[in-house]
Simulated scan of single mutants.
Amino acid sequence: MIAFIGSVFSPWYRWSGRADPENHICLNVVTYGRGGRWTMTDRGRAALHQSAETLTLGPSALHWDGERLVIDMDERATPHGSAIRGRITVTPSAVTGVELPLTGDGAHVWRPFAPVADIRVEIDRPGWSWDGHGYLDGNFGTRALEADFDTWSWGRFPTKTGAVAFYDGIRRDGTRLHTALRFDADGRAAAMDAPPPLQRFRRSNWLVARATRCDPGHRPRQVRAMLDAPFYNRCEVETVIDGERVRGVYEALDLRRFRGPWLMPMLAVRVPRRSGWRIRA
């Protein structure tokens, strides 16, 4: 689930010139497995309300109550049109103070709010509710991702003592982004002095290149497919970090493909625009 102000992957936002991010908002929800659904409705500024504790995006809202993030969603899947309604509660073990610039001028920033959290998912369909391990982060930027990056990959892997996270990418100026952080359950973060090497594994079905960190002598591998698109891949990956075999969510993004004009009409089919939707009093 991703809440957007300035819907990064929306063709409507790109076609608008990206001058008004508050006029392109959405709550992207993806469920996996049999009957899985996708929601990413692009709405206008009349559907947005912000306060210190609450972010309202059309019929859905996120609220921070001081200890947990409560997300009430009421969205429609595309292209099926079926409703996805429910509540997700994310309870961090701690909130970090980490804020990491991804470019030298700070135009892109990653904020891992809660690398270790508990999650409760309650969706109004039989078998779609569960409790488990969760994660909460945010990305902020003043330029388009494809303006500054050719590729990037990200992975977050729960460990016995907390979690590790990796950010690796190639910027358009040829410089590289390599970040490896270790988090404990109390929210303390530390850079890994000698992170495992970056190792490639099998390309996605759309042939997006994938690589993540893994101890020498081992290889990362996909253990569960999640989301596969021409420019983006999300999956569950098993790897070995400091001798510990771990599984976590991994993402790879090819922004060279995303820059291509051929992709936007394809995305418009999956990202409907509802500019006239207004928050009901």
Rank of each mutant, 00 (worst) to 15 (best):
T31L: 04
G134W: 01
T239I: 14
D124P: 04
R202W: 04
V237F: 04
I119E: 05
H24Y: 13
G127L: 07
R14F: 06
G127E: 08
G36L: 02
D184P: 05
C26K: 03
R210V: 04
A94W: 09
A114P: 00
R34P: 10
R257W: 05
S60L: 06
R247E: 10
R176Y: 09
M73Q: 06
M266V: 15
A229V: 12
T54G: 00
V223F: 07
A252H: 13
T39C: 14
F140E: 15
A144N: 12
P197E: 07
G97Q: 06
I25M: 07
E53A: 14
T159R: 10
G33Q: 09
W206E: 14
G134R: 00
A191L: 11
P92D: 02
M266L: 13
R120F: 02
R125H: 13
A229E: 03
P21E: 08
A191C: 00
A3K: 00
A252E: 05
R213E: 06
A229T: 10
P158I: 11
T78E: 08
V271K: 05
P21N: 03
Y167I: 12
L207S: 11
D168I: 00
F9Y: 15
I123D: 05
D168T: 12
F157T: 02
P261I: 07
V246E: 08
V98K: 06
R120I: 01
P11K: 09
R221C: 05
W277E: 15
G169W: 00
R280D: 13
L253D: 01
A107E: 13
S275R: 14
A229M: 14
P21G: 04
P261Q: 09
F166Y: 15
G106H: 13
V246C: 14
V109P: 04
L55E: 14
P261S: 09
A229W: 03
I170S: 13
R200V: 05
R202K: 07
R202Y: 09
S153P: 03
E99L: 02
T103G: 05
P115M: 10
G217S: 01
L48E: 02
R85S: 04
